[in-house]
Design a protein around this nucleic acid. Sequence first.
DNA 1: GCATTTCTTGACACATGTGTCAGATTTTTT
DNA 2: AAAAAATCTGACACATGTGTCAAGAAATGC
Lengths: 220, 220
Amino acid sequence: MNKAASVELELPSHKGEKATGRIRRKNEQLIVNAAKEEFAAKGYHGATIDSIARRAGLPRPNVHYYFDNKLQLYAEILSIIIDLWDDALNDLDPAEEPAVALREYIERKMAFSRNYPLDSRIFAKEILSGAPRLETYFKSGYGVWFERKTRVFREWAAQGKMDAVDPTHLMFLIWSATQHYADFETQINAAVGVNRLSDEAYAAATETVVSVILKGIGVA
Amino acid sequence: MNKAASVELELPSHKGEKATGRIRRKNEQLIVNAAKEEFAAKGYHGATIDSIARRAGLPRPNVHYYFDNKLQLYAEILSIIIDLWDDALNDLDPAEEPAVALREYIERKMAFSRNYPLDSRIFAKEILSGAPRLETYFKSGYGVWFERKTRVFREWAAQGKMDAVDPTHLMFLIWSATQHYADFETQINAAVGVNRLSDEAYAAATETVVSVILKGIGVA
DNA sequence: GCATTTCTTGACACATGTGTCAGATTTTTT
DNA sequence: AAAAAATCTGACACATGTGTCAAGAAATGC
């Protein structure tokens, strides 16, 4: 499911190279993409090196040639996902008009759920498990990082541009509503009775999320 | 984590019995509760019969005495969870005032996330995996069931009691926002910088979700 | 086109996990 | 308190999965 959605990615550790490493880059990409599918579908424990290798079209020991062990491969993927998110979702700008900035932010998050559902699911599973392999990430400065993310809501509220809604929980509301379309795709498809939401249906979903939240916090 | 939240439950298959089966009931309960913790934390594949047995304080073959195999135990738990949800979350009543009924519905869903986070997480993981063990559930009449759930929104909108918001996506918005507090508890705690949201913080979360959504769909 | 590096692959050792079974023990019935 | 039923438990067979290694093949550098 969603093979087409897999992102073609450059592994950050090997970007400057030329001829040498050509094969390496190609195979690492094959493996990472295959591993994403497997981890997303079966979780860390359920995915096997063998299934990843088969999906990548490589013999199993070859996977070990590029990645020391399963945990390292998984950790690398988690880190790729987090980098991807950080890059794509820059902060909301307090200087902008909330109606514009927030709409754009939600639309981008929804596009993310549409285009990178595997990434979202891997991350979601990790958190559902208590994030045992993201301890550092969540301990070191995550609270501060999150506080900065929500500051914009406080500023807009102070300027009277939106209601004084609890910024923390507003952020969770936005995140949950948008990520839901990646993480719970199976349930959504079953409820709607399709194999995949059409572009039109997805646009309607986005519009619903945007309009309810904007109106809900008093933004025209 | 969340041991206290585990529900004391009656296994549906053995409710009418008396003295005989006393031990059976007690042990099945021990096993199911232990299995919920394990499945919620590690997923179907990651959980082992041995870890479940140890958590339940029983030797491993004893688990097999009560449950034929791992899949059956897991399936039984899924079915318990679905029954629990169905029982607790009856439909929204179109005859009621949306402001009252919807608030109560959201509050109940939030209470569920607070009180039965393990159940929510097990279900979420199953769906994230593509629900391979809920195929029947999602195929047989789920679309119809869901359509009935959303009908109330259409009726309220027709009566002018709320905006004509897309009922399907409104339902997803409510589900995602509320279940998020069970499923993403780890991330939420890290963001807020606590080990567990206080009752007050949780009430604030509930109030935020309720007020943004109600206002967002034009309900006073 | 030869030497060096990179990559491939089958075979192996080891670890963990599932489910079974038979005999022992405990609980319940009569 | 004897018989029957239910429960417990150690030991086993089997399957699957991880990571290693050494030798061979292919690609690259000179």
